[in-house]
């Protein structure tokens, strides 16, 4: 089901948690809300769920205005950060709960409920554990139960709050891939909240980057990474270097040196140059470049990270080189960004 968020404002007391947020989510999409803590991503998720009420604005499920509906009426599936399993119920009872409590008119027969729950247990690969209690499961298994429980009610939209936050790195990676598979198989419209960019970029169809109660950018993982629209997104996603430059007659200048990058069409004046450590080319001789002295160099997996001191006013930048390229301390390296972006304050 499509979910449309329109001009949502949310204030806690006087603190504005969300400020005029609008977002269209297509049916069947897997979408990530990404941002640092306090960016409002969890609040947005809880508003869609109906666990919070907007101060202002509307939320549509399909063509229907859902914002006046209670959480119970919205028929959503919510997976909580700490799973919130009912600890006095078995795995099977946890998963059947949402169906069992329906009023008699809408409740499937108990055999149907059981069949549906067992299907889900199978889907989340917990067959044989249906009689266990949550206390007898591992973190990853609890997570799967929580997901199956949320899917049992055939939700309009599946909402996950930091679904992998409480798991260790290994299990996290595994479950991430598995969640993508489940999503592709079931096709639920899914929104998940995360502060982990790797998770968002790997898993989601589209990523919503949030900061300070506002949406900074919405786009596919490639768009978010390759063409960030704001300094915040550039800085938040991946590694980046920031240099103070000057635009003058279509060229970029650091102090009185041209760095050999043409910025045709940019108006003259001071600006911030953003570029990623790996979006550079090395230059043998410097007729317009950025040059610096190597102050540190370390090998990280398939690349060499080199820290350069490029002069007192700019400080240090980090670039990535192929591992076979040596960079001895105090040696001089000249380079030029190949892909970059200018932001003006």
């Amino acid at each position: 089901m499509e979910v449309r968020v329109q001009n949502i404002h949310k204030e806690f007391g006087r603190f504005p948690a969300l400020d005029d947020v609008s977002l269209d989510i297509r049916s069947g999409e897997l979408i990530a809300l990404l941002g640092p803590s306090g960016s409002g991503k969890t609040t947005l998720l809880r508003l869609v769920a109906g666990l919070e009420t907007p101060t202002d604005g509307t939320i549509y499920f399909g063509d229907e205005d859902a914002s006046r509906k209670t959480v119970q009426q919205r028929n959503i599936g919510f997976v909580f950060q700490h799973y919130a399993l009912f600890r006095h119920m078995t795995v099977l009872d946890n998963i059947s709960f949402g169906l069992k409590i329906r009023p008699a008119s809408r409740r499937p027969t108990s055999t149907d409920i059981k069949r549906r729950a067992m299907e889900l247990i199978d889907l989340v690969q917990l067959s044989g554990l249906e009689k266990r209690y949550p206390a007898q499961l591992s973190g990853g298994q609890r997570q799967r139960v929580a997901l199956a429980r949320a899917m049992a009610v055939e939700p309009n939209v599946l909402l996950l709050d930091e679904p992998f936050g409480a798991l260790d790195a290994q299990v996290r990676k595994e479950l991430r891939r598995w969640l993508r598979e489940i999503h592709d198989r079931t096709g639920h419209t899914t929104i998940f909240v995360t502060h982990d960019q790797e998770e968002a970029l790997e898993l989601a169809d589209r990523v919503v980057v949030m900061s300070k109660g506002k949406i900074e950018q919405v786009g596919t993982p490639d768009e978010i990474y390759d063409t960030p629209v704001s300094p915040f997104v550039f800085g938040f996603i991946g590694q980046s270097n920031i240099l103070s430059v000057r635009v003058e007659s279509g060229q970029l200048w650091i102090e009185d040196r041209s760095i050999g990058v043409s910025a045709a069409g940019e108006p003259d004046g001071p600006a911030q140059l953003y570029f990623r450590p790996h979006d550079i080319e090395l230059l043998e001789d410097c007729g317009g470049c950025i040059a610096g002295i190597v102050t540190a160099s370390r090998r990280v997996a398939g690349t060499r990270h080199v820290e350069l001191d490029i002069g007192a006013t700019q400080g240090k930048v980090e670039i990535e080189l192929p591992p076979e390229k040596t960079a001895t301390d105090r040696s001089r390296i000249a380079f030029r960004p190949t892909r970059w972006k200018l932001f003006r304050s």
């Binding site: 769920a49 959503i76 919510f78 909580f80 700490h82 919130a84 009912f86 709960f97 409590i101």
Partner: peptide, 22 residues
């Protein structure tokens, strides 16, 4: 955990069901 009550609510339980069954 407050999340447990919210979980029951998101699954469609009304307040009485949340209290009596969860």
């Amino acid at each position: 955990d407050k999340e447990v009550e919210e979980a029951a609510a998101t699954l469609g339980a009304n307040r009485f069901q949340t209290i009596s069954r969860v």
